[in-house]
Design a protein around this nucleic acid. Sequence first.
DNA 1: AACTAGGGTTACCGCAAGTAACAAGCATCA
DNA 2: TGATGCTTGTTACTTGCGGTAACCCTAGTT
Lengths: 214, 214
Amino acid sequence: MDTTQRTEQQRSADRRRRELLEAADRVVLRDGPQASMNAIAAEAGITKPILYRHFGDKGGLYAALAKRHTDALLDSLRAALDAPADRRERVEATLDTYLAAIEARPQVYRFLMHPAEGGQPGDPGFDVGKHSAPLLRRMGEELATVIEERLDLGPGTQQLARVWGHGIVGMMHAAGDWWLGERPCSRAELVHSLADLLWGRLAAAGDRMGGPGF
Amino acid sequence: MDTTQRTEQQRSADRRRRELLEAADRVVLRDGPQASMNAIAAEAGITKPILYRHFGDKGGLYAALAKRHTDALLDSLRAALDAPADRRERVEATLDTYLAAIEARPQVYRFLMHPAEGGQPGDPGFDVGKHSAPLLRRMGEELATVIEERLDLGPGTQQLARVWGHGIVGMMHAAGDWWLGERPCSRAELVHSLADLLWGRLAAAGDRMGGPGF
DNA sequence: AACTAGGGTTACCGCAAGTAACAAGCATCA
DNA sequence: TGATGCTTGTTACTTGCGGTAACCCTAGTT
């Protein structure tokens, strides 16, 4: 049981794991989230049990796959969030980064957002919360910490920052999802409209004639 | 082929359909979205093929089920949106109505939001967009029309209203989902925080010391 | 040569979706 | 009266996927 040897094996396993993930990636990109384990195994040039040895179950594989993409996306979002510019410009850059990402690889996006269930047929109880897309949660928390770090919101900053983090991410996500489906306007227009919303233009807008305003 | 007779049969079929939906509802409420067709049929006191005769496939049943709840929720949201009060109060009432609904029946909420896929293994192509939760889309469109009707946003109102509709709904949804999982604060606090966000407090907030503001 | 470790495969189980094919109850029509 | 059809229901099957058990084979160690 030599240490270097053990490390060597570890490395080999890790490399294999990465290869498998890349194969899985190709299949998911082609077939969507409902890609079967058989298909993924075939793409990787092997058979099912190996996948199960590496990832435990389908959820494990999908989680690993999701983590890769999520990490990548979060990195680029962080970059946009940290750019040297004023607040509005940064917000717009962040929105644009996100939208560009989902625009570039819709299949990946769909896979990340709709991992399709997470409860076993055997498990009777299942708790609401863990689900939804983990990506959304992570982005929300990430944004929350950024807001909390950089904004002065008086007492209750922490709570407020978290609510806003998740809220803004949700806004971005839903608008992006809709936009991706209908393409009613350019990306830049969408970004601008959303930033306007965050900048309070909703509250500032005037009523239309007839009846009390919204 | 008498008309009245045909109507009679139609009515009978509709009643049966409603009964089946109610049974399905109970099962989904108990077992979550991964409830099996067998279980639903058993709950209704019948067997699978009848369900398939009425709803085509599982997707059909789920769509019918989702429509019921979605309609109900949309009705209460419309009521909140139409209440006689000023804009901020209405927004808060609407947020609160939504949150109260998901708080009261988390299982239903989860079912509506994560219908679990929509693509057949046979269909090779599948387009991003149709998916996501139809509920989100419907709420977004609904809110968009309300905004467009009541707010004067100058040229481009229509586009802006739709973006905002979907964006606000997404904000509400993501924040609600997170809140439901962690319960970090009271419903009222959440509502207030979200309304503050929409009222531009993000843009108005001061920077914290050190580095440029968010 | 004998033994063990990993990477690999075949062949299977269980279970859920979906589909014939068949069996009443009950009206209508010759 | 009986034959005809339509709706309602059933049993029994097929297919396909997630997941697993049992076995195989090659390489390196002693």
